[in-house]
Design a protein around this nucleic acid. Sequence first.
DNA 1: AAAAAAG
Length: 617
Amino acid sequence: MIMTTSWADSVAASEKEVGAARFSSDQASQPRPARPTYVPPHLRSRPQSSGSPPAPPSAGAAVASAGNERGGYGGPTAGSRPTGGFRPDAGRGGGYASAGGWSGRTGGRDRGRDREVNPFVDKDGFEQAVVEQDNAVINFDAYEDIPVEATGDKVPPPASTFAEIDLGEALSLNIQRCKYVKPTPIQRHAIPIVLAGRDLMACAQTGSGKTAAFCFPIISGIMRGQYVQRPRGRTAYPLALILSPTRELSIQIHEEARKFSYQTGVKTVVAYGGAPITQQLRELERGVDILVATPGRLVDLLERARVSLQMIKYLALDEADRMLDMGFEPQIRKIVEQMGMPPRGLRQTMLFSATFPKEIQRLASDFLSNYIYLTVGRVGSSTDLILQRVELVRESDKRSYLMDLLHAQRENGVHGKQALTLVFVETKRGADSLENWLYTNGFPATSIHGDRSQQERELALRSFKSGRTPILVATDVAARGLDIPHVAHVINFDLPNDIDDYVHRIGRTGRAGNTGLATAFFNENNSSLARPLAELMQEANQEVPTWLPRFASRSHGGGRNRRSGGSRFGGRDFRREGSFNRGTDYYGGGYNSTGHGISAGYGAYGAYGAGVTSAWE
DNA sequence: AAAAAAG
């Protein structure tokens, strides 16, 4: 498909395509006419009519704040109130200013809300999001064509706009501030399902707007809910729990959730290991509605009785397949089944992942009650924007090969700065030694893995994001969910054994509407990956080296995961396979939509703000 | 087999 002869050429080609996608008003001039360039909606800055503001998501919200002007959310205005309703007992100890003050209904004591930091501006008071100057012309059809399948009992119909979902004014305002105009496919389907009170297992590609898909209905539900007063004391009683497999991902989810819940009276707290627990305890004491956490630290807090799960109404597992794999499953089971959380049916449970193997689905069904299975196809997924290459590289040649790539990359760097390159290795030791080697050879590299201190991890991530060290050597700790803008190149120095891990890894590039490059070093040690990798690349219209499939025969029964469900979907509801639960009307209410049947699609506007990448993850 | 997640 892509006919480039050298790696440097393909970088150059990628750069050209990015330029074309952003600046050209002529789709036909794209170098890849056969496949329209897909641009995620949040990146479609002001298409068509230049200068016109994005369509307001709802009439009501438009009245409250004209357009997306800065004045609308420069900060809490004196006397302003949350517009989306109030709750009498935000956080712990309802009615007390320390926790509930910012609900705006505590006898005029607004201390709490005044303290709420505006998450939409940085510490210097500037808007975080950089306003994209250029107008992009995007092919919306690719987006409309994303196949969506929902199965289960009486599936609630999808919504095509945020306005018709009615999430409440305060939340709508935040959605506007985030510059989301239209819900993404996963959001269109998932939000009505959750608002209808149903459990959900959602299989959606990386970068499909998952975080917002579970945050919006949770925040909305908490705002509307009339919950019995939570006990006072040192124990925090969150109403929602969001679990994720890595600390950095929890941090990221929390940052997103803070934006969505700004001035709604819904308090979000994050808790994770490796960091001092005292500050987290202090935050929890001030009241928490939504707790974002990694499993280990949460168990710690539960055993100290500083957190109780008795009031949980919403449970969300991000990267759920990872959370339920061999390493994590016992811990998750303990949290969900043995720590006082209301049983399924009495809470709402949402599982999200880009990949959902059948074994994991079977495990996961223990936590769910009459759930809906939702799968969003990978057509138009971010993998579409990624140019994938596989090189045959002997183990002993990897370092010099890497050096060649990095040299080429340096020459192709934009604005004199080296483009960000993420190098995945298999082991923590391997990460250390490769970082060291790169560093001694004059490459600005750092590394992130589980044996580094949390401080070092976060520093490395910041340093990488800022471009100070544009090369990051990482283990799988960085493979999932992390939203790092401007990663131009993902190098699988060591390939993973599982094709799903490969999918997650390369998903770190090709984000935010930029094309990305993914290079893998393949040798006989990776034979088990040959078949699934070849299939995946073929599916993504990538050029498959002729030698690659030949390695497949050398693998013995490996290559698990012939990607089920064919090419259109990331997965399939395991309840539809075999005889499991035949007879119950599990999928009687299911439907299948390619998006064509949904009116008010994406044709008119697609003006998601630029630089607002993470909610699309 | 490795990585992640508590200290």
